[in-house]
Design a protein around this nucleic acid. Structure first.
Length: 490
RNA sequence: GCCCCCAUCGUCUAGUGGCCCAGGACGUGGCCCUCUCAAGGCCAAAACCGGGGUUCGAGUCCCCGUGGGGGCACCA
């Protein structure tokens, strides 16, 4: 099985493309076939020089490595369409010679005018066949004379064309609803319809998995294959991703905004936000594909083993970021501690914290089940690397307590801790609980005051364990600081 | 406007004529656990778009509506 992922480098790489790439990759791995990366850069106007880079690093991050591609080469290169112009010309000429394509000299202005009128008359905008029946000899002369031209496909006027999609079955359309599509632009480069068909054939692609936005021109593609007399690949059109609301195609304007729950659609943004590639793969794999009625967690190896085209779902799917969070939490909790430590380390660094791996490795077990993304680790545990804490005076006052109560509780806690011979977890916890009993307050109230005093946060990793990492002296110092702050409020 | 595709809980989905008074997951609500927050456990609410057929029997097949999505470029 030979499959390909053929994006056009016109913008950032998003999860829709990632899913298409993933499915292609899975098929190749599963069958021991090849996964080809082809860059469809025939549109020089929309070309974005940074796009191919981002695409490559996104795919690598996800672990979707390709067997043949622009950087790797392979037996059917080059793998960048802009470098294959002469190949396309050869096939355009074949069509021209067969009388299945023709030169068209209409100016873009004329075409726009024609289109405009048709729309005004509420007729489908289509080419008006102005050049369709020009004599090939005359046309060739005009070409030789240097006149600007394009080449159009001579779509049959009569009959029907049936295109077979693996998920949807046969799709039959009247040829009269099809246009005489442009195959070769006036700049000498082909459009997708020609380039992709020629490449898929030459690169011996056996299964084409692509977005369902190609469904309307699918019959044209079949017609092109037929015009060349080539055997068609198996066609599979993947459903589109919809916005989380379910309204409209996934828009690329989602910003990273944790408050509103919005996330970016871009793979690299997901990486930067602290999602695990394992989670992202698992998440996108399940949008449009399922294995059975209950299995949801799939490692890459399991996906390779269990993926099947037959279980693909043709209906559009709204993306659900909270499910991504869920998967990410699961994968984070399943990580070995040292692995997790290494993964969260860069996030502390980029937050500008003076993190050291030894300390961080003691923190990791405390936060592993509390974070949904790697970035969350900084939020919950960043305070460990701050020299000082600045507790909010208001928050320092315990639940159902006055400032005086809280100050007293803190002072006594400080004394109890100071009097301890060591600083072991059990001893600290036991003595603090005893203190709470003696003071006739709940342990939770005492812990609450101390939590703010020591971590500066209302939400933190477990208090006693956190104290161990901060150290006895600093803990006592922070409690004293809190007492002082509380005293000012009495 | 024309063409094409799709249609099960809010969302992702299972379901290929009887196993379905429709299963799982996320999310939501409640309870338990609990030093906060999580995690974990238990429970709950929540769907076959509508109408016609076909059939002994339809979520499952067919038709028509409706709704949603996509496309209609010298973009892919």
């Amino acid at each position: 099985m030979r499959v390909r992922f053929a994006p056009s480098p016109t913008g950032r790489f998003h999860i829709g493309g990632a899913r298409t790439a993933l499915y292609n990759y899975l098929l190749a791995q599963q069958t021991g076939g090849q996964f080809i990366l082809r860059i469809e850069d025939t549109d020089r106007k929309r070309f974005d020089p940074s796009a191919e880079q981002e695409l490559a690093s996104s795919l690598r991050w996800l672990g979707l490595d390709w067997d043949e591609g622009p950087d790797k080469g392979g037996p059917y290169g080059p793998y960048r369409q802009s470098e294959r112009a002469d190949i396309y010309l050869k096939y355009i000429n074949i069509l021209l010679e067969k009388g299945l394509a023709y030169y068209c000299f209409c100016s873009p202005e004329r075409l726009a005018r024609v289109r405009h009128q048709q729309q005004k008359l509420k007729k489908p905008p289509r080419y008006d066949d102005h050049c369709r029946d020009l004599s090939p000899i005359d046309a060739k002369e005009r070409v030789n004379a240097g006149e600007s031209y394009v080449v159009r496909f001579k779509t049959p006027k009569q009959g029907k064309t049936t295109a077979v999609d693996l998920l949807r079955g046969p799709i039959t359309v009247d040829n009269s609803t099809l246009d005489d599509y442009i195959l070769l632009k006036s700049n000498g480069l082909p459009v997708y319809h020609l380039a992709a068909m020629v490449d898929d054939h030459l690169m011996k692609i056996t299964h084409v998995l692509r977005g369902s936005e190609w469904l309307p021109t699918f019959p044209l593609h079949v017609l092109i294959y037929q015009a060349f007399g080539w055997e068609q690949p198996t066609w599979v059109h993947l459903s589109v991703f919809l916005n989380p609301s379910g309204k409209g195609k996934l828009s690329k304007r989602f910003a990273i905004d944790p408050k509103s729950g919005a996330r970016s659609v871009y793979v690299l943004d997901l990486k930067q936000t602290g999602y695990l590639p394992e989670a992202v793969n698992n998440w996108i794999a399940l949008m449009g594909w399922s294995y059975d009625d209950h299995t949801e967690i799939f490692s890459m190896d399991e996906l390779i083993e269990k993926f099947s085209l037959e279980k693909l779902n043709p209906s559009p799917a709204a993306v659900n970021y909270s499910k991504l969070d869920h998967f990410d939490g699961i994968y984070i909790r399943s990580l070995q501690l040292d692995d997790l430590t290494h993964r969260i380390l860069p996030f502390f660094k980029s937050a500008g914290l003076p993190v050291d791996e030894t300390t961080l490795s003691r923190i990791t077990p405390l936060i592993q089940e509390r974070i949904r993304t790697l970035e969350d680790a900084v939020e919950i545990a960043g305070f460990f690397f701050n020299e000082t804490v600045e507790p909010d005076p208001e928050q320092l006052i315990g639940k159902n307590m006055t400032a005086a109560d809280s100050a007293q509780a803190a002072r006594q806690a400080s004394e109890v801790i100071a009097s301890l011979p060591g600083f072991e977890n059990d001893a600290v916890e036991k003595s603090l609980r005893n203190l709470a009993d003696e003071m006739k307050i709940k342990a939770g109230q005492l812990f609450g005051v101390l939590r703010i005093a020591i971590t500066g946060q209302r939400v933190s990793p477990p208090l006693i364990e956190s104290m161990q990492i901060i150290g006895k002296d600093e803990v006592l110092h922070r409690i004293e600081q809190a007492v002082a702050i509380l005293n000012r409020q009495i």
